[in-house]
């Protein structure tokens, strides 16, 4: 695919900033609309909302027996579900954006309009993120309503914090997916890599650390920091802090972290997550802007 034939979109650079913004918004809106008209969007939404609802209902007998102590358990299950589904959604759909659109010619069509590559990139990012935000908010909303209605017990503050953290995780994963998309040569490779990265973040990383901890007696500080460097784990630990009384429940590594970081514990973990939100998407943007062959 040669890019020399593509018009160099210098024109819109001269436009006022408002026009640039509006073209980002227009691309985002188109991306969002395409997403919502696709089957996968409804599949993800139904899967996430459905599973979240099942979790909320499954926790009901417990909440009748043990009052609000059961909220921690509902929240923990919801966090586990989020850990699996949100990264899969974000990574696969982020990976599909640029690589798929390039293969189908949609990207060339898009760039033939008076938009520059920066606008196109952020439009795609925002549109995909908006669609997934809707999917995840629908899931959390459904689970929250069921928990509140059926058991009359729930901690709104913690629930909102978990939702916002899940949203940050989602943005991080879309960004990482788009980075994969700019690195991969073909669409299939992008999707395959995205699934592999998902496996790595959700399963293999933790399993590797567990194995290392058992085999080499890894120090608790090394164990904690190599765990929390993973954005999926950063999400989990920050979410856990919203409903657990203390990090002591995480065993020696949790006690170490609470002692070592004190009141900075949650801010540090959230910062790690936000770095994951900002950095991959920025690299992806840089690559997309400078590499005309993409």
């Amino acid at each position: 695919m040669t890019t020399e034939a593509l018009p160099r979109n210098g024109r819109s650079l001269d436009l006022p900033e408002r026009a640039q913004r509006s073209s980002v918004a227009a691309i985002a809106r188109k991306e969002l609309r395409d997403a919502i008209h696709s089957r996968w969007f409804w599949m993800w939404t139904a899967a996430f909302a459905g599973l979240a609802a099942v979790l909320a209902i499954a926790a009901l007998p417990g909440s009748r027996i043990a009052g609000s102590a059961s909220y921690g358990r509902t929240a923990a299950s919801l966090v586990t579900l989020t850990q699996i589904i949100i990264p899969l959604m974000g990574l696969t759909l982020g990976a599909q954006t640029i690589a798929f659109q390039r293969e189908s010619g949609a990207l060339r069509f898009l760039l033939s309009h008076p938009v520059n590559r920066t606008e196109a990139f952020w439009g795609l990012y925002l549109g995909t993120s908006a669609a997934l935000t809707a999917a995840s908010f629908a899931g959390f909303g459904a689970a929250g309503i069921l928990t509140a209605l059926r058991s009359g017990s729930g901690e709104a503050g913690s629930f909102v914090r978990i939702t916002l953290l899940a949203w940050a995780l989602l943005l991080a994963m879309v960004g990482l997916g788009m980075l994969i998309s700019t690195l991969a040569r073909r669409a299939a490779a992008a999707l395959g890599s995205a699934v592999f990265v998902w496996l790595l973040l959700v399963f293999l990383g933790d399993l590797g650390l567990m194995g290392t901890a058992v085999a080499t007696r890894l120090s608790v500080s090394a164990l904690f920091f190599s765990t929390v460097a993973n954005p999926v784990e950063a999400f989990r630990l920050a979410a856990l802090a919203s409903f657990a009384d203390s990090f002591d429940i995480l065993g020696p590594a949790g006690t170490y972290a609470a002692d070592a970081l004190g009141s900075a514990l949650v801010p540090v973990i959230v910062t790690i997550l936000l770095v994951w939100v900002a950095v991959p998407v920025s690299i992806a943007w840089f690559r997309f802007r400078t590499r005309q062959d993409l």
Partner: peptide
Amino acid sequence: LPTQSGRDLLAVSTLMLGVAT
């Protein structure tokens, strides 16, 4: 046993569904 009213949770959850819709 301590229990909490689900009212706040219901409100924020409805808001989330509203944002999604």
